[in-house]
Design a protein around this nucleic acid. Structure first.
Lengths: 211, 211, 211, 211
DNA sequence: GATGAATGAGGGTTCATTCAT
DNA sequence: TATGAATGAACCCTCATTCAT
């Protein structure tokens, strides 16, 4: 039995390879779940796309649903921290908003993460546990951060209305619409998302302060 | 053709009964498709909910997909006309917007039609034909109507910014967010949708003109 | 109640109409059973082809299988009598055989009855009752008639071999092959059936006596 | 690709097992298709007879029709070669015919292959592709081989008539009739097929040369 | 009698999950 | 650990048969 008790280095390799595989499965799953929806996605296709055997998936995830939920969780975690950091800098609102918008366009709308949002919107109602996680980890923290920032701005007199303080949802609404629009109507009527979001910021914060 | 032509009364009854059944199937389908999504919904359950036998569905709809598409279409048709009428009245923007908002809350957000919107958002990417139909029959006409109304308002000096003229999507964005929110986060954080939408109107059109 | 107790003439009409419908159903059934086979044929299609409603079939036949069996029986009955008559005439073998061949070509091979034979060959093994009926009503009587005729010929010295007396099947074998060939290979290699059968008669009875 | 290449022995076992299963499915399918016909045969029963689960069939054959067609093809292939070989030996006709007859009785009529012929006769008209394959691979080659042999015999003066040269179908007609007879009338009137076929050969080639 | 809407058992096919290798 | 063949429950759809009109 030559390969009993692997050397420490081997253990390291093992762990790395394991992480790689896990990542490959998650990446493949994102594609398939996005393309077909949770119910219609086939683990066969996930495995093929990840370059592994079907059974291997079950060495990394308990079942299809667990795979789905861990996919959402793994993609979401990094986002929140970044957002909180960006909004905690105590910049002028308009500048902060502009930064957040750029962050959204670059890190979410322009990447596969856009599809994570779409998955949550589409499948969330069938996975209450997931919606709850998403609310707790992303939405509520995001809203809290935004609200804190806006309150400071309001106190400084930078805000003529308290509408977005009471309903921070209004701030990200155009982002949601942009994601949905892209999925549904891109072929029929492309949308200049950056322009739309800037117009929205102008509405909310007044014009002129954009760089 | 021995008595192939039924008596008029019989025909009437037949037609009524047929229409009733069709409606019952569509209503049941809406529930099931909304609750589980297209792929996971079972026609067995649709039949049971409609109080008919499984095979009966196929007397009214060619297959599962046709049922789904006709469901969307049948629910959508009445909406557009109402919207166009409401926006064509040439009222002051703020009043028109207020009316449209009420219409949305009463006729869409407050009814099962809300779920139709959710279905389009969720399943639309997998049914390009449907997304195209929705864009053509609802979105493009809605945008055109909104834009016409806003242009008249802009010309009358009622609008301080042309943002919503260029991107009417910004006007309905809170409505979309409200629908999604209700589906996902209602249990964790209920949202006063009417207040949010009114706050949004204040942002866009300025305050004070609300009744 | 004006139509109670129909006049005798009405009864006549009723009976005629009934017979007509029955015939129409049988004709339609022959087409469908031939085209698709018993199991795959649909009574819907039979009804449509017969120009009646689906349920009406059950006013004339107990079920699908009964319809099938009565179809076979009704088409078979007239054949046997004709055959027995033709072979009972006490003509020279070669002439009798020639006549039988013409009868076969004109009344069976050239008509829809060919398909009845094919149906019996194809479906007979699944309908033992039918095979038994066919054997009793057609095959055994046909063989008896042929054998009687051949014996007389043999006694008269017209036959050099008793092969066909012992195995009358050999006489009709080319007819069977012709029917099967037409169904399977007609498109790839048409067969001059009359020539083949005449060649066969030449083999069996010797040449020169043909008209 | 971690150990994606199985050890040679494993591969061998896998392949053997696979071939065995395939054969078991084909054998079971032959029974079921023969017994009920293509349309009425149930894959459930095929699976049960083969001792496997229903879904397993689909690991070996794309669907019911493919299974059927591959069944026919796999059973047919070996037949043709044997026939061509037997007829290519340049023996006296009568001897060659005797051998072919024995081959037919032993390798076809006396085995399950008889049912393959029956399936082709019964279902061929509904599977034109199959009829075409059968014609191309079996019939046309068989006819060519027979014809070549007969021509040599005719040139040697062994044949008093050219009937079978022009219509080799006449030679196999009794074989076809034998197969059909067995399927339909065996219980009511068993047939001494060997005797019938020998009588037929006597008719065609004259008597006396039989061993 | 005639109709055709309704029924529901049944069959082909898919696919998440398991397990021997 | 990784594989992928095997499983079998589940689901869409068909169609022979029934029955209210």
């Amino acid at each position: 039995m030559p390969q009993s008790k692997p050397k420490p280095q081997e253990g390291r390799l093992r762990r790395d390879r394991r992480a790689e595989r896990r990542a490959a499965i998650l990446a493949a799953a994102l594609q398939e779940f996005t393309g077909r929806g949770f119910a219609a996605a086939r683990l066969d296709d996930v495995a093929e796309r990840a370059g592994i055997a079907k059974g291997t998936i079950y060495l990394y995830f308990a079942d299809k649903e667990t795979l789905f939920q861990e996919l959402i969780r793994s993609e979401l975690s990094p986002v929140v921290g970044t957002l909180e950091f960006a909004l905690g800098l105590d910049l002028p609102v308009r500048v902060a908003a502009e930064r957040a918008m750029e962050l959204f366009l670059r890190e979410i709308y322009g990447t596969e993460r856009r599809n994570i949002i779409r998955l949550i919107i589409s499948e969330g109602p069938r996975f209450p546990q997931l919606a709850e996680f998403y609310y707790r980890e992303v939405i509520s923290r995001g809203i809290a951060a935004v609200r804190a920032m806006l309150k400071r701005a309001h106190a400084r007199g930078e805000l003529c209305s308290d509408a977005v303080v009471r309903f921070p949802q209004l701030l990200i609404a155009p982002g949601i619409v942009a994601i949905i629009w892209k999925g549904l109507f891109e072929p029929h009527a492309p949308l200049d998302v950056a322009a739309m979001m800037r117009a929205h910021l102008d509405l909310v914060f007044g014009e002129g302060s954009a760089p």
